[in-house]
Design a protein around this nucleic acid. Structure first.
Length: 857
RNA sequence: GCCCGGGUGGCGAAAUGGUAGACGCAUGGGACUUAAAAUCCCCUGGCCGAAAGGCCGUGCCGGUUCGAGUCCGGCCCCGGGCACCA
């Protein structure tokens, strides 16, 4: 049932059809369908208090068009949405107001949902998920247990980014230019007990499998760079003080071993204290302290000035037995390789700078093609000053020297990655609690007899001389829910607010069932009960988004994160759309978890996101990034009220290529709005009844040109949707509507077909006009129009005449015109002839139907 | 510094190596109207020209080609990412 409005009253039409669709379940994915499946997914939003940003509907409109198009093409479409609702802003709000983050989150979700519904997206709301729902995070915790059982989770005291303002640690990736990504607060280094996930164990596969996914090349490159694989060798340098054992270094250039004139240890290197000589002790201690006080920002940003201090110790170069001084310098990072390097100043820019500063020798061992390149020389070349290896090329020498060292047991070829293990804990309240209890060694030994899900090696942590063992809760005890707390404020020493909740924290734990009783109560009877303290850290926001795309296939399942049937049928998203800002973080973490699940045999594919697309950023009208402070923010709510969501959707797609960064324009949106008004007027007269130009007689035939254009438009719109070129799809619909307007009379069928093309883009208007023109059922259920290739055939084409490559004229000619005839026509053409006068044709290039180029001299 | 994108009218943009500027916006002119809005029609890359027409034109310089926005080489500018990773 359509509305009765006489004019294009989008404020009446849009809510009308939104409730119609909601009541008639147009968007729900079918269960047990024999249709082919299509799974199209948006990156689900964090429901912030600020509401929907204009960038959200950009990507969401694109996926909605695809979803509606695929449904019309006979696919069973899964198009879900949910909430990535754990996270810092909600918690900071809780800290400020003292209200539970859950209630704030709930309010935000209500608002987001209202906004998203007002945009008319065809999400399957029956599959809505919320990462903070215990029914959901139960499975987040379950996946963590799988990682834990496989030895992929461990605890480590390590220097981490601590943000005093946020009172939490942040992952490397969450720190930008020495400030927190959220809020932009300064961060500092602190040593804290942390959960860490062994993502480095998957480095090779995360890198190799990038070749199998259809992603933007730039995003693949970013992940490649992030993983940062480099091949080289580990080499052992004997120390003069043999009692200390060898010094292990990593280098990608074993071929330059003869050029090593000093060694560098990172200030944090464990050997520093041991090998520093008495005379140097003071200087080294001072330097180390200074280095420790520097943030990484200072260590890298002020990078150009190298600093360091001599340790007083020497190592022996394994290739030529030379004595090499050992320096301590913070340009070597403890976190990469072995935290120690051999310095080859002649062929490494950093070593060169350092050597110059401290007047260390810089002997050349690689000669480039030109006799005397300036040092440092990092290019290709052959070895010199390397007795026994002179004259070899770089790769040959690399191989030969590595082999030589390996044969003597002082070196081996290795691969290093920049990728570090993933810091997985936050000292916060508003996140998934770890399903872990800390217990004594005695109790752990007992648990080992009762439990089969413990890791091969126990995860332990020592503090104040006591070693605690990490016992996972049994899966049946999940979810482990958050206790209610008095204060959401973390303690200043870096412990989560959960650490203050003694009744939740200190417990009697049943090892086999995971049942818990507060330790203030007497210990329940039975052997399985032990004393335990719960883990107080919570998981980072990334956890919930690492696997949500799997939950959508079977969101209500209480026995598994999703059933094998659902996972087999729906698989992974066929298309995943979201911002490029997640190029490394979310997308890398999710790939890691997916591969773990794949290894467990619970998901059938090795990669989660086969096809990925990033929508571009929409700038303000001033061409700057939208921001409150600039006052150039455009809110979807405002536009929906002034122009309607169909206009907004169409405009967002018409702006330019989806992936491009483009400025918003209030003038341009009027053009798109007029286009929709025009379609309305062509379909309906001022009284709101069918425009008399639309032929009611089914025998009425459109002109051949009009029919041809219709079929061209069907083809173009379909092709463009498939290729996600929505802007040109809309152009072609505008061209058609211009023809529609000029035609004195048109068939009803042609107009209905056109409305179907428009329907994925402007579903409300299309549905309304479809109903008023007597289309049967919902336009959303009508099968996608098929173009007739025979209608696209043209008999006459415009042939362009060129003389010496310059356009000189053109003429309408029959398709498949013979070359001789074409040349004769050109010669006879009044505009072409003068350019041929007095000249002879030396060459003819004829592309039938396109161009005839006469080369004359 | 390194790795990706991208530079086309007044503006957003379009163009399997084959008429550069489709489509839309804006500007100007006209029709309708008492008037306005809305709508419709026409013009609109630059220069020369009364016109017909000509010349130039896709960041810059060169090259390949009958023909280059598109391919190749070298630069310049803008945006994004990485950045002492040995």
């Amino acid at each position: 049932m359509s509305t009765q409005c006489k004019e294009y009253n989008f404020l009446e039409i849009e809510p009308h059809w939104q409730s119609f669709w909601e009541e008639n379940l147009t968007a729900q994915a079918e269960q047990n369908s024999s249709k082919p499946k299509y799974y199209v997914l948006d990156m689900f939003p964090y429901p912030s208090g600020a509401g929907l940003h204009i960038g959200h509907p950009e990507g969401y409109t694109a996926t909605d068009i695809i979803a509606r198009y695929k449904r019309a093409r006979g696919f069973n479409v899964l198009h879900p949405i949910g909430w990535d609702a754990f996270g810092l802003p909600a918690e900071q709000h809780a800290v400020k107001t003292g209200t539970h983050p859950a209630s704030n989150t709930r309010n935000n979700i209500v608002n987001f949902k209202r906004q998203i519904k007002a945009l008319g997206f065809s999400y399957d709301w029956a599959r809505e998920i919320d990462t903070t729902d215990p029914k959901y995070f139960r499975w987040t915790q379950w996946i963590f247990l799988q990682l834990f059982a496989r030895g992929l989770a461990y605890v480590d005291e390590r220097p981490v980014w601590w943000c005093p303002e946020l009172r939490t640690v942040l992952a490397n990736e969450e720190v930008v230019d020495g400030k927190s990504e959220v809020g932009g607060f300064p961060v500092e280094r602190r040593n804290l007990r942390q959960w860490v996930l062994r993502i480095t164990a998957y480095a090779e596969r995360l890198l190799a499998d990038l070749k199998d996914v259809d992603w933007p090349e730039s995003t693949k490159r970013m992940q490649e760079a992030w993983i940062g694989r480099s091949e080289g060798a580990e080499i052992l340098f004997e120390l003069e003080n043999k009692a200390l054992g060898p010094l292990k270094i990593f280098t990608t250039r074993p071929d330059t071993l003869f050029g090593c004139t000093y060694m560098v240890l990172a200030p944090e290197h464990p050997l520093v204290d041991l090998l520093t000589t008495a005379e140097q002790k003071n200087a080294v201690a001072v330097y180390r302290q200074k280095a420790a006080g520097k943030s990484d920002l200072e260590r890298t940003d002020l990078a150009k000035d190298k600093s360091g201090v001599f340790s007083g110790a020497y190592a022996i170069n394994p290739i030529n037995a030379q004595r090499v001084p050992i320096w301590i310098a913070d340009y070597v990072l403890m976190g990469y390789g072995t935290g120690a390097i051999m310095a080859v100043p002649a062929h490494d820019e950093r070593d060169f700078e350092f050597a110059q500063q401290f007047s260390l020798p810089i002997p050349r061992v690689i000669a480039g093609p030109d006799a005397d390149e300036k040092l440092p020389y990092t290019g290709d070349g052959i070895l010199v000053n390397s007795p026994g290896y002179d004259g070899l090329t770089w790769p040959e020498a690399k191989k030969k020297i590595t082999t030589y060292l390996a044969a003597r047991g002082v070196g081996k070829a290795t691969v290093n990655y920049k990728l570090r293990d993933w810091l997985f804990s936050r000292q916060r309240y508003w996140g998934e609690p770890f399903p872990i209890a800390w217990i004594s060694e005695t109790d752990y030994r007992k648990a080992e007899l009762l439990r089969k899900d413990l890791p091969a090696r126990p995860v332990t942590f020592s503090e104040g001389g006591v070693t605690l063992f990490a016992l996972p809760l049994p899966a049946q005890a999940l979810p482990l829910e958050l206790p209610s707390v008095q204060s959401y404020l973390p303690s200043a020493n870096g412990e989560s607010p959960l650490a203050n909740e003694t009744p939740w924290l200190e417990i009697w734990l049943n090892v086999t069932t995971g049942a818990a009783v507060s330790a203030t109560e007497p210990c329940p009877a039975g052997d399985a009960w032990i004393r335990a303290r719960r883990e107080t850290n919570t998981m980072p926001q990334w956890a919930g988004s690492c696997w949500y795309y799997l939950r959508f296939t079977d969101p209500a399942n209480a026995d598994a994160f999703a059933s094998p049937e659902a996972l087999n049928y729906w698989g992974v998203p066929d298309l995943y759309v979201g911002g490029a800002e997640h190029a490394v973080l979310h997308l890398l973490y999710a790939r890691f978890w997916h591969k773990v699940l794949f290894d467990l045999g619970v998901v059938p594919q090795a990669e989660p996101f086969t096809k990925l697309f990033h929508q571009g950023i929409i700038l303000g009208e001033d061409g700057e990034k939208m921001s409150k402070s600039r006052g150039n923010v455009v809110s979807p709510d405002t536009i929906i009220a002034s122009h309607g969501t169909d206009t907004l959707r169409l405009y967002l797609m018409f702006l330019g290529p989806l992936e491009a960064m483009k400025p918003w324009s209030m003038q341009q949106i009027e053009g798109v709005h007029r286009f929709l008004h025009k379609i309305w007027r062509e379909c309906l007269n001022a009284e709101g009844s069918v425009n008399p130009k639309i032929a009611t007689d089914p025998a009425f035939a459109d002109s051949p040109e009009f029919t041809k254009l219709l079929h061209e438009t069907i083809k173009k719109v379909g092709d463009d949707i498939e290729a996600m070129r929505f802007n040109t799809a809309i152009s072609s619909m505008m061209i058609f509507s211009n023809a529609l307007q000029k035609a004195p009379q048109v068939s009803r069928a042609a107009v209905l077909t056109f409305l179907q093309l428009l329907a994925p883009f402007a579903p409300h208007l299309a549905e309304e006009l479809w109903a008023r023109l007597g289309g049967s059922g919902s336009i959303q259920r009508a099968p996608w129009p098929v173009y007739d290739p025979t209608r696209l055939v043209t008999t006459d084409v415009k042939l362009v005449f060129q003389v010496n490559g310059k356009h000189r004229g053109d003429q309408l000619v029959p398709v498949g015109l013979a070359q001789d005839t074409a040349v004769a026509l050109a010669q006879a053409n009044a505009k072409v002839a003068p350019h041929l006068e007095g000249k002879s044709i030396v060459r003819i290039i004829y592309v039938p139907g396109k161009i005839l180029n006469l080369v004359v001299a």
